[in-house]
């Protein structure tokens, strides 16, 4: 009879941080020197996103566009994708500063320094693309309303937000870094972002699970219910940001608001959101953070 051996204990956030810091040093890159920015891009002449990832794909508004119109939309949708990622990284950087030294140990703190460095470079990169070729970064419409938290709830909420922006974005990055038919500069930015995000996501998943196991068992049922309701709403709201009527207007779509509402309601788009969210939702369910798949 074989001896029964316990499964290997999962790597702690401390051990993981040491490994990830080493990888970050090895893969250190320079946002000011490593990217060859083309003098101009051909809006309407080339694809900037994989067509299936364009937010209106499969809806009547998409069907009504000719090839040039679709390519044009893929440009403004990419500017929106980069803009919303950038706006997601702003509070992320702010929150990471609160995590280092005070709450986390030396190994985790060291990795957070890399995390911060990388996120700052991402914002430079996304901001440069949007300003250079579109002349602007799309504004975000989120409003922060102050809230009171149970012990540990604020940290848990923070890492949930981090994971949502990073995991949804990473699905797009991975698809587009592989797509040889899109503009090389888009492909390159997606590739660079994914290279760093792969580490951030592993780290975020580990740390969030630890925080959850530490704090959630001590919360009142109302806190748990409140957090789960908020999470479902936040995920839905994060998805809504992918459908930006200002970008549609810039792409020349007349009924931009209606096009957005139609895409939010379309079954094909809902299927897309579910597919992209799958890994993330599975993680939330496996860890016990969510009990069931939220409506998207």
């Amino acid at each position: 009879m074989n001896a029964i051996t316990a499964p290997p204990a999962p790597e702690t956030s401390t051990q993981l941080s040491t490994r990830l810091s080493r990888a970050s040093v090895k893969k250190l890159w320079n946002v000011y020197g490593d990217i060859a920015w083309p003098e101009s891009v051909d809006i309407g002449g080339e694809w900037f996103m994989t067509p299936e990832l364009v937010s209106l794909y499969g809806t009547p508004a998409w069907d009504a566009l000719d090839e040039t119109g679709r390519k044009r939309l893929s440009f403004y949708d990419l500017v929106n994708f980069f803009s919303l990622t950038l706006h997601g990284e702003r509070p992320l950087v702010q929150g990471l500063c609160n995590q280092m030294y005070a709450r986390q140990n030396a190994e985790v703190t060291e990795y957070i320094h890399h995390f911060l460095d990388e996120e700052n470079k991402h914002m430079v990169m996304f901001g440069e693309f949007c300003s250079r070729y579109a002349g602007k970064v799309y504004a975000q419409k989120k409003l922060v309303v102050p809230k009171t938290y149970a012990k540990g709830e604020e940290d848990v909420t923070f890492f949930i937000k981090v994971l949502i922006v990073e995991e949804l974005g990473d699905y797009y990055n991975v698809m587009m870094q592989r797509d040889a038919s899109i503009a090389p500069i888009s492909r390159e930015i997606n590739r660079i972002h994914h290279a760093d995000e792969a580490r951030h996501i592993i780290f975020g998943r580990r740390l969030l699970a630890e925080l959850w196991n530490e704090h959630a068992p001590k919360w009142q049922p109302e806190t748990l219910t409140g957090l789960r309701t908020w999470l479902a709403g936040y995920l839905k709201a994060s998805w809504n940001d992918f459908y930006n009527p200002t970008a549609y207007k810039d792409a020349g779509i007349a009924d931009a608001y209606d096009a957005r509402q139609a895409a939010l309601a379309a079954e094909c788009c809902r299927e897309h959101r579910r597919r992209v969210s799958r890994k993330l939702v599975d993680y939330f369910i496996d860890t016990g953070i969510l009990e069931a798949e939220p409506a998207l």
Binding site: A139, Q140, K141, K142, L143, V144, V145, G233, Y234, K236, A237, N240, D241, P245, T246, A256, Y257, R260
Partner: peptide, 26 residues
């Protein structure tokens, strides 16, 4: 409305007004 619904409200107001709302100045 929750704070998350405010985004939807702002986008709806923009569609009625035909121009963007500067959220930072609200």
């Amino acid at each position: 409305l929750s704070s998350l619904d405010v985004v939807e409200l702002v986008i709806f107001i923009e569609s009625l007004r035909g121009e963007e709302v500067d959220v930072d100045s609200i």
